[in-house]
Design a protein around this nucleic acid. Structure first.
Lengths: 346, 346
DNA sequence: TTTTAACACGAAAACGTTTTCGCTAGGTAA
DNA sequence: TTACCTAGCGAAAACGTTTTCGTGTTAAAA
């Protein structure tokens, strides 16, 4: 077992100073060709690589990005990470991942663990619990210590930082618009409780689409699911609630759900009730994932472009890290959504 | 913007030495109560936290685990990461993620990027390309430099390190056994090319199950898919191949697929051909993911317990990191699979 | 011969910690 | 008085780099 070789060891071995070794390896003109070749040959032989930690300490930069997301077993967040990793790697950065698991405390702890020099900046999406409690002091503290943050998808306006979002309202408005144009007269909405901003915005889009088509809002057609616990029980009760929705509103001929799973389950319920898709009832879900693509019938969705969001967020953060001198200007980048039409709509 | 405060600054401010500050904060008996209180109060006020990088350099430990996986937008790998992160966090470690994207070069580069002091050890699953080329020098080099590696799922015997795997052969044997016991007489196998070890082992399990039931192996019932490119085209051609399989083997009454997607697509093809599931034909897939659970009919699967694998791998690695003095002993932990019965089997 | 300039290299500081060792002042024992 | 002990603190090394500045040698110029 040969431990990693250091400058000091090379210096000792070749009977020169550490400085000389360092300079020789970086092809400094100060060093004679002889010495340079000798050092480089030795370094290559022993497979010398500069110690990253020492460099980080010296440069006060770690070339590492901290990413904190609520959940990783989730198609959208996984795609975002892929985007972040792609760009980070290309630009010479590493990615360190923390999971908040939707918990405020874990979010805070994770940030503290990383903010002590381990990383240069954060990319994150806020935990549900944090959104509910509306306690954002950990973000503000981090920012005030000079560590840049880029937020994506679940953001709050109160915090001044770069943001990457999609136009949730526009996306869902387009989706509902599509249903209405396809002839639906009674479009149901399956959404979440309002504290998650994206849920609220998507609901808003639904309402606006109806207004634009001069259709009245029927609150009986709106199902607000409490997604506190996404356990097995929750799925069962969700199915029951949707069942109930259909039973009480026999005229439903279109369904818009704020996520893919709700839409898939709604389709299942509809089929069980003998409804033909898309002839009797059409479906659109927000968030394009594996389920939508491989369900039968496949589900028309509003694509969120997770990977693109991740790429953009990483670019924003690294740009900021590498141009610290410039004056502070924060942007909010909006990624366009688009409707991926599949078999669940006409 | 208040930058992070250091020991030096506190020392200067309170007119004591750096050593005194350090000791006071660690409650050393060398320091008088007076000084200790003074320093601690000041540190609290300015929210002092030791710089992680400096600690890493000093201790030659980063308290960080490097994880390299082929793909993150993948239910199984995401679950593994969740397991790793869970244990790592609990034990005071961070997780840094690298994606090989199934490429040999990216795998090598990612490892080099991290092996230079950034992390204490690796948890990884080998890229397909690496398995194909059978070039494992980067693993061996890393190990010989004294950096422990734990491999999971896709492993190779040649490399001496801790491993966490499932019994692929037993898992698939059980699955096929289930189909045979359920009365299937012509069980088809949809698998991948042989270079990915798990594919080969799962095929082996299929064969053994048949043998145990004294059934002859019909090679026409085995479809070996080339999954080099998992693009759109690939999915289409996959569907065509399966279509062909059914057309040429009208007697097929059971299908075992080495992953969930193949099984889902096979179900789709079967249904298109007018076959009833599970009455006419039954299906089982390896790897339990979202698709299996929410498909209609839902798919019976062999569960891989990704999260448990991740947890075990992290525990193995951290144990090794924290007991370096002990003699080297490498274990291979086998996680039990189990059959999750759903609607696609009787 | 003396001055100058280029060349080649080394010493040391800095990044932020922890820890070992030594020092001083005051008190106690002989 | 002398010797010794102890409490309380500081200096310095170490982790592995990079970089600035200084220095000695040699050859060319005056």
């Amino acid at each position: 077992m040969k431990r990693k070789v250091t400058l000091k060891q090379i210096a000792k071995e070749l009977d020169v100073s550490i400085s000389t070794v360092s300079k020789a390896l970086r092809n400094s003109v100060e060093i004679s060709e002889d010495t340079r070749d000798k050092v480089q040959a030795f370094a290559k032989l022993y497979n010398y690589r500069p110690n990253n930690i020492a460099l980080s300490l010296k440069n006060r930069k770690t070339k590492t990005i901290g990413v904190i997301i609520p959940e990783i077993v989730h198609h959208f967040f996984a795609k975002v990470i892929r985007g972040i990793e792609l760009v980070a790697n290309k630009r010479g950065y590493n990615v360190i991942v923390g999971l908040s698991n939707e918990s405020f405390d874990k979010e805070v702890i994770n940030m503290q663990m990383l903010a002590n020099g381990s990383i240069d900046g954060f990319i994150l999406s806020i935990a549900k619990e944090t959104l509910q409690q509306q306690d954002y002091h950990h973000f503000n503290e981090t920012i005030s210590q000079g560590m840049p943050i880029v937020m994506f998808d679940r953001v709050v306006n109160d915090i001044v930082c770069d943001k990457v979002i999609i136009d949730d309202m526009k996306g869902s408005k387009n989706a509902v618009d599509k249903l209405l144009k396809n002839g639906c007269k009674h479009v149901a909405l399956i959404t979440t409780k309002d504290y998650v901003s994206v849920g609220r915005l998507r609901t808003q889009g639904y309402i606006e689409a109806l207004e634009e088509h001069k259709m009245s809002l029927d609150s009986k057609l709106i199902l607000k699911v409490d997604d506190e616990l996404l356990s097995e029980d929750h799925l069962d009760s969700l199915e029951a609630e949707i069942e109930d929705l259909f039973k009480k509103n026999k005229k439903i001929d279109g369904v818009f759900a704020v996520n893919e799973l709700y839409a898939i389950i709604a389709m299942k319920v509809a089929r069980k009730r003998g409804l033909k898709i898309p002839d009797d009832v059409q479906f659109i879900g927000f968030t394009d994932g594996v389920l939508s693509k491989h369900a039968t019938p496949s589900l028309t969705t509003v694509s969120q472009h997770g990977q693109e969001m991740g790429e953009k967020a990483a670019d924003l953060l690294i740009d900021k890290l590498e141009h610290e001198e410039e004056e502070e200007r924060f942007q909010t980048v909006v990624i366009e959504t688009n409707l991926i039409e599949r078999e669940s709509t006409k």
